[in-house]
Computed example of a mutant assay.
Amino acid sequence: MTDATTNGFQAGRTGLIVRIPEAEAAVRTWRERFDPSARAGVPAHVTVVFPFLDESRVEGRVHQALADVLGGHHSFDLRFERCGRFPGVLYLAPEPDAPLLRLTEALTDRWPEAPPYGGAFTEVVPHLTVADGPDDAVLDEIEAALRAELPFTARVSSVDLMVHDGVRWQLRAAFGLRESPRPDSE
Rank of each mutant, 00 (worst) to 15 (best):
124 V>S: 02
42 V>N: 04
124 V>Y: 11
112 P>G: 04
24 E>A: 13
30 W>T: 00
158 S>F: 03
118 G>D: 08
114 A>W: 00
145 A>L: 10
72 G>S: 07
148 A>M: 10
70 L>T: 12
93 A>Y: 02
148 A>S: 15
14 T>I: 00
3 D>E: 01
111 W>H: 05
186 E>Q: 06
156 V>M: 08
8 G>M: 06
118 G>T: 09
161 L>A: 09
12 G>V: 01
23 A>I: 01
165 D>V: 10
84 G>M: 01
14 T>L: 02
19 R>H: 02
153 T>V: 15
49 V>C: 03
169 W>K: 01
66 L>G: 10
22 E>F: 01
43 P>M: 09
9 F>A: 02
83 C>V: 12
2 T>R: 07
58 V>Q: 10
102 R>G: 06
72 G>R: 11
4 A>P: 13
141 E>R: 10
134 P>L: 00
173 A>M: 06
17 I>W: 04
113 E>P: 07
92 L>G: 01
96 P>G: 06
166 G>L: 08
50 F>H: 15
107 L>W: 03
124 V>T: 08
71 G>L: 11
111 W>N: 01
104 T>R: 06
24 E>V: 08
159 V>K: 12
73 H>G: 12
182 R>I: 07
34 F>A: 12
167 V>G: 04
8 G>W: 00
36 P>A: 06
121 F>W: 13
63 H>G: 10
65 A>S: 14
56 S>K: 04
19 R>M: 02
137 A>F: 13
88 G>H: 11
13 R>F: 03
90 L>E: 06
71 G>Y: 11
179 E>D: 14
72 G>W: 11
161 L>Y: 06
97 D>M: 11
40 A>S: 10
11 A>D: 04
148 A>D: 08
172 R>V: 10
107 L>A: 01
88 G>D: 14
5 T>K: 14
68 D>H: 15
150 L>D: 12
100 L>Q: 00
2 T>G: 13
105 E>I: 05
143 E>T: 03
111 W>L: 07
142 I>D: 00
144 A>R: 15
78 L>F: 14
145 A>V: 05
75 S>T: 09
116 P>T: 05
64 Q>N: 15
112 P>V: 02
34 F>S: 04
26 A>S: 03
96 P>V: 05
153 T>M: 15
6 T>E: 00
168 R>D: 15
67 A>G: 13
24 E>I: 07
37 S>N: 10
172 R>I: 07
95 E>P: 04
11 A>F: 02
84 G>L: 04
157 S>G: 09
8 G>H: 11
152 F>G: 12
85 R>A: 07
44 A>F: 02
4 A>Y: 15
8 G>E: 05
119 G>V: 03
66 L>E: 15
33 R>I: 06
145 A>N: 13
44 A>W: 00
90 L>Q: 05
122 T>Y: 15
147 R>K: 14
62 V>H: 10
110 R>T: 12
97 D>A: 13
53 L>E: 07
105 E>M: 13
56 S>M: 05
169 W>F: 11
176 G>H: 11
140 D>T: 09
23 A>Q: 00
128 L>C: 11
157 S>V: 09
182 R>T: 12
158 S>I: 00
38 A>V: 00
78 L>P: 08
